[in-house]
């Protein structure tokens, strides 16, 4: 019988955090054309001010917190407060300054514009 597995698995190095809301990865669609990469993420019920989009060192991370405010006794509850969190790797060819994001109907739409150097170019053939 092995006694190697610990009864309580804990990261001693991390300060203890109290997390009372569950975390969930939002569903996303990713599209691309010659100019940009488009990312659509479903985040129903998340307010604009509760969304953070960070891009750092080739990592794009989305975070959105949903707080459900309702009065009265719960009859049934199929969804609740949640933290949407997902991280993507983005290519270095994205122009970080030109990224823009919009939130409509509970969908976060991110436009990741490619830098000029990364766009495909048509080479014209000159007649000699």
């Amino acid at each position: 019988m092995s006694n190697k597995t610990e009864l309580v698995k804990g990261e001693k190095s991390l300060p203890e955090r109290s997390r009372d809301i569950p975390s969930l990865a939002p569903l996303v669609d990713i599209y691309e054309n010659d100019d940009e990469i488009l990312l659509h993420a479903d985040m129903p019920g998340v307010d604009k001010k509760d969304i953070t989009v960070n891009i750092d060192n080739g990592k794009l991370s989305l975070c959105g917190v949903r707080k459900i405010e309702a009065a009265g006794a719960v009859q049934w509850e199929e969804f609740g407060n949640i933290e949407y969190r997902r991280t993507f790797s983005v290519p270095q060819t994205i122009d970080v300054d030109k990224i823009n994001a919009e939130l409509k109907d509970g969908v976060l739409r991110l436009h990741l514009v490619k830098s000029e150097a990364a766009k495909p170019k048509q080479i014209e053939i000159k007649a000699a």
């Binding site: 019920g45 309702a70 009265g72 719960v74 009859q75 199929e78 969804f79 969908v107």
Partner: peptide, 16 residues
Amino acid sequence: NLYDAGDHLEMKVELP
């Protein structure tokens, strides 16, 4: 989600 607030019911639906 459905809540009962006495004089009215409140329903919330996730529709992204």
